[in-house]
Design a protein around this nucleic acid. Structure first.
Length: 459
RNA sequence: GGCUGAGUGGCAGAGGGGUUAUGCAGCGGCCUGCAAAGCCGUGGACAUCGGUUCAAAUCCGGUCUCAGCCUCCA
């Protein structure tokens, strides 16, 4: 298994710390708003990674955190006049609904920052004890002293002098070094807070991930993932915190997924150019969105457009069309050629576009065989379904896929029309036959005649 | 300015020193009453300038362009 490691900037052979075990931590959401497509990408990509590791027989523990306390949450709750708890509970539920829709399996653990305050305080205390953190005055913020950690910058390739030179924000006089970052934030009036040795306050953003990941997965674990934008400062700071506190290496392999873009620009909250998962699911079925995400390599940029989603739909239709009308036997396919090639490309840094290309080759072969050698076609259809399943795709019954969505006509009515049309066709009344077909077409129902009869699907 | 990464056919998107990616769209054919779906065939590409090499889209260097990070962000 080759995986690109951001830490070394190259593909590496993945070697688990414990044979056959993968411990994976991914930075999840800050729950103060709806998930957008960028969040969907992280969820789908790492879902694919987890599924694939499991398919290879690894015992995976997958942790994806939930940030349920931070400035934006406080601000949003205040604006909406509701409690932080009700705000975060609501958006956690929304996130779960979106993830479920996209076929994203729940992580094994979804720790929340507010449930780990004790562990966070302990970790900060360790850092202070070891000289990595300081408090300038009683009842003031606690900072991480970046210059105490000699490897600072090893993940992002940044050097402290350059960072300081590029410092744009006004120097905070409470810090010893402009690059120092906050571990514990003193509470202002009316802000939620927890007691600590440094006064009432709340954790800084980075420390929660250090505390929760090491609690669940140990001081040293295999893979840590997240979006590219977390590389710096978030993940860099996590390394500094965790390795500073534990004295052990933190993570062997860092995986970062590329951004979703709109018009060649990063989709983000601050730019306001985002689509929420809900908006997109309003117009495209979830599996199409999942396909769309997996049709690009996880490290490449993913440009969002309606045209792209339309194409994704057509592609997925093609795969399901190949499966249509074949009853799966679930007997393993003796021809291992496709499976082998699929695994080869997946084991090269999760090359899902290449893996999908192999599925299309399978689809073509099924279509070739289906008339003259249905038994063999079914064998390959089993294989296609199985391989698709490794990506979390093609698990719907093809008939349901093509017919399930809501339409203005009931199935009975559609079948009634088809019967009428077939009667007309018997009489070679092509005008009437075509008229009925056009009527259905206008309702978004496509008819397909074949030797075995007429089938229909939603456009 | 510093640090990343990228520039592939009409669109999307892999690959990557000599041999078809794949999907959508196009063109020709088969099938069909006509379609649709499917099958067969087909055109079309590697930003630019140099270098290495028998051979470069693929390696190296320069240039241009784009994106990202350096501030919250998946």
């Amino acid at each position: 298994m080759l995986i690109y490691n951001t830490l070394t900037k190259q593909k590496e052979t993945f070697t688990p710390i414990t044979p056959n075990v993968v411990n994976l931590y991914v930075c999840g959401m800050t729950v103060y708003d709806y998930c957008h497509l960028g969040h969907a990408r992280v969820m789908v990509v790492f879902d694919m990674v987890v599924r694939y590791f499991r398919a290879l027989g690894y015992q995976v523990t997958y942790v994806r955190n939930i940030t349920d306390i931070d400035d934006k949450i406080i601000k949003r709750a205040h604006e909406k006049g509701e409690t932080i708890q009700s705000l975060t509970e609501y958006f956690i539920q929304i996130m779960h609904e979106d993830a479920d829709a996209l076929g994203v399996l729940r992580p094994d653990h979804e720790p929340r920052a507010t449930y780990f305050i004790t562990e966070i305080i302990n970790m900060i205390q360790h850092l202070i004890d070891k000289g990595y953190a300081y408090q300038r005055a009683q009842m003031s913020d606690v900072y991480y002293a970046v210059n105490q950690f000699k490897d600072y910058g090893k993940l992002s390739g940044k050097r402290l002098e350059e960072l300081r030179a590029g410092e744009r924000v006004e120097v905070d006089t409470a810090k010893q070094d402009p690059m120092d970052f906050v571990l514990w934030k003193t509470a202002k009036p009316n802000e939620p807070s927890w007691d600590s040795p440094w006064g009432a306050g709340r954790p800084g953003w980075h420390i929660e991930c250090s505390a929760m990941s090491t609690c669940h997965l140990g001081n040293h674990f295999d893979i840590h993932g997240g979006g590219m934008d977390l590389q710096f400062p978030h993940h860099e700071n996590e390394i500094a915190q965790s390795e500073g506190a534990t004295g052990e290496p933190f993570v062997n392999l860092w995986m970062h997924n590329g951004f979703v873009r709109i018009n060649e620009e990063k989709m983000s909250k601050s730019l306001g150019n985002f689509f929420t998962v809900r908006e997109v699911l309003d117009r495209y079925r979830p599996e199409v969105v999942r396909y769309f995400i997996l049709a690009s390599h996880y490290r490449s940029p993913l440009n969002y457009s309606d045209q792209q989603l339309d194409t994704a739909k057509q592609s997925l239709d093609r795969l399901y069309t190949a499966l249509r009308g074949l009853t799966l036997t679930h007997i393993p396919c003796p021809n291992e050629e496709y499976r082998q090639r699929f695994h080869e490309v997946m084991q090269d840094d999760f090359n899902t576009p290449e893996a999908l290309a192999i599925l299309f080759e399978l689809a073509r072969e099924i279509n070739r065989l289906r008339v003259d050698n249905q038994a063999q076609a079914i064998v390959l259809a089993n294989e296609l379904t199985m391989l698709g399943g490794l990506l979390g795709l093609l698990q719907t019954d093809p008939e349901c896929y093509f017919q399930s969505a809501e339409h203005s006509l009931s199935t009975e009515m559609i079948e009634q029309f088809i019967a009428e049309r077939n009667a007309a066709r018997q009489n070679k009344n092509w005008a009437e036959s075509d008229r009925i077909r056009d009527v259905l077409k206008a309702q978004g129902i496509i008819l397909e005649d074949s030797a075995k009869g007429t089938i229909w699907r939603k456009e």
